[in-house]
Design a protein around this nucleic acid. Structure first.
Length: 279
DNA sequence: TCTCAGGCACTAT
DNA sequence: ATAGTGCCTGAG
């Protein structure tokens, strides 16, 4: 399948650290899972080439990578200071993507006090041990095949035995995963419904999960629930924000950046973060 | 050996 | 409300 794009960089987007479920297998070529479909995706200029198993529909890909949004308009809205502007110059085409709500929630619980390679490793091990195998993807132009596994469902996470969680290197986060899975099951919470709520209500539900605080809740809202105004602050973003808003309390920052970046503070955050991490 | 990495929970004020 | 501390793990 071929999708024509503009103002989209697969590499910047998937290497930005917003998503931990993709593996780079060659230049501009990644494999991962979307909606239980194994997907291989390669970008060449404005063309996205997609192989999937079983066949995935185009709309799903377009929605996942946010290809139908007005990129130029968002960029215009967030071009408010020199840091963001240099981020945009360097990482043009970097987009926020729409991850699966459950995968995103647990991935970000794993991200607590952790680094990207280790988050990815734990995510993959959990999928390997507790997920379902997807038919191997064979690569015509690359001489190997790649096995993919779905991210485990909530029941598997809730009932996972401790040895497996230990082996997935979850450390102190293991109990967060189990407790949150249990809470979602017990209270019959549907994460797929949260995007229909007022973002504040969704936020309050998310931070009621053990292992989900302010920062992680905002990551989940931004990366899987389409809340473009969510502004997760890690240590580096904090530095940037403090240098600009010396006289404000941290609790006021969310409102300030919402106004400044016109509802797209989350996108601003992504560009600041890209600069910081030098992806 | 030691510190630190995209936090959070828990406890003590 | 707010500050301080421990936590799994492994890379540098």
């Amino acid at each position: 399948m071929l999708i024509k794009t503009k103002q989209f960089s697969l590499q910047y987007t998937l290497d930005s650290g917003q998503c931990f479920s993709w593996t780079k297998i060659a230049d501009n070529t990644y494999v991962g899972v979307i909606n239980r479909h194994g997907v291989k995706i390669r970008q060449d200029g404005n063309n996205l080439y997609i192989e999937s198993s079983p066949e995935i529909d185009k709309e799903t890909i377009i929605k996942y990578f946010n290809l139908n949004i007005n990129y130029d308009e968002i960029i215009k809205k967030i071009s408010k200071d020199t840091v963001i502007k240099s981020g945009i110059d360097k990482y043009r085409g970097l987009r926020i993507i729409n991850q699966d709500e459950y995968e995103c929630t647990f991935a970000y619980i794993i991200s607590s006090c952790n680094n990207v390679p280790k988050i990815k490793a734990s995510y993959r091990l959990l999928s390997l041990y507790l997920g379902d195998k997807i038919e191997d993807l064979n690569f015509k132009d690359i001489p190997h095949k790649y096995s993919l596994y779905t991210f485990p469902n909530i029941k598997k996470l809730e009932s996972a035995n401790d040895i497996i969680l230990k082996d997935a290197k979850l450390g102190f986060r293991a109990k967060y995963i189990k407790n949150t899975a249990k809470k979602i099951l017990d209270e019959n919470i549907d994460l797929y419904n949260l995007h229909n709520l007022d973002p504040k209500d969704a936020y309050n539900i998310l931070i009621s999960f053990q292992g989900v605080g302010d920062k992680i809740a905002k990551c989940i809202l931004l990366y899987s629930m389409g809340v473009n105004s969510a502004f997760p602050m890690d240590t580096w973003i904090l530095k940037h924000v403090k240098s600009i808003y010396k006289n404000y309390k941290l609790t006021e920052i969310q409102d300030i950046v919402n106004n400044l970046y016109d509802g797209y503070a989350g996108w601003a955050q992504l560009y600041i973060y890209a600069l910081a991490r030098k992806i």
